[in-house]
Design a protein around this nucleic acid. Structure first.
Lengths: 166, 166
DNA sequence: CTGTATCCTTAAAGATACTG
DNA sequence: CAGTATCTTTAAGGATACAG
């Protein structure tokens, strides 16, 4: 993010985190990765991001240890997967405050068949559920007349292996 | 953030949230506000941000309903206070993954005298504790030789009413 | 003290074409 | 398919001065 000399000195945890995931596009890339996207071209199709920018972001995420590059696949590390509750909470915050129709998508813990809460935890089992144990369903925030390409294309996020037409 | 035309169409909750708080500086400003900062000059001193940029960010946060301008004070709305667990989780993520000495600051629920967990909840009472009920203590991630100006200047974040020398 | 306005410099975004 | 390279435009950062 290049916040500049002063933030490093400030010894602020939040600033340090934002140096890693605070740049434009970065958290959207991480979200896609949490949904199971691994390939350059699939990120590109989904996000409609300039290739040069995507290249730089992926490189940076590899450098900081959020992604690991395995052949042509970018796969989340533990550090990266650890971002899931944050990504989820932020999306829910967006829903609560800037959507007049509620969430665009609903996440159901496959094991318990319960929708997870705003913090990403399953009310039934109490755990923060990682994305690979979730089913995605279209929510009321989506245009009802339109099918949701994401939730239609897959039930579990980790079946999102092909680029989905948006 | 001006992510561009496509994100709005994408009906993505996360993208919408990032349009509001995803720009550079914005989340740092929100964090300061959560710590009790309200005045233009205090944000400016703390963050060492150009006045023009700070002015634009504050205006934008007021426009989106994260802050409310009351006279010369910028005070968090419910929407803004609602960002606390997210800001806290992100900072903890930064600590866990990018600090070799642990968190820079520790947050203790005043009522229960218990440090809150990574999600911002108090282990004793189970609630997600809002910042005004927290005491800040310097953590091991801080340079031990240096006093932490934030935790020295105040015990509760909401006593951070004066600009603190950094 | 709280901003706005100006000017300059740098960096990032976007579009497009090209290579392994 | 997975990127690089180049070019243009736009936005942001930093310094400074000025007004309410």
């Amino acid at each position: 993010m290049a916040l500049g000399k002063d933030y490093v000195k400030q010894e602020c945890s939040l600033a340090r985190a934002l140096e890693v995931v605070g740049e434009r596009w970065t958290l959207l890339i991480v979200r896609d990765a949490l949904y199971g996207v691994r390939r350059f071209g699939h990120f590109q199709t989904h996000l409609d991001i300039p290739r040069a920018v995507l290249s730089a972001r992926l490189q940076s995420l590899v450098d900081t240890g959020v992604l690991d590059k395995q052949g042509h696949d970018y796969v989340l590390t533990g550090t990266g997967r650890d971002l899931w509750p944050i990504v989820h909470s932020l999306a829910r915050w967006g829903d609560r405050n800037f959507s007049d129709r509620g969430p665009c998508r609903l996440f159901v813990h496959i094991g318990c068949s319960e929708p997870i809460d705003a913090g990403g935890a399953c009310p039934a089992c109490g755990r923060v559920v990682p994305p690979e144990e979730l089913e995605i369903h279209p929510g009321p925030g989506l245009d009802a007349a339109r099918q949701d390409p994401v939730s239609v294309a897959l039930r579990s996020p980790h079946r999102l292996l092909e680029p989905v037409p948006v």
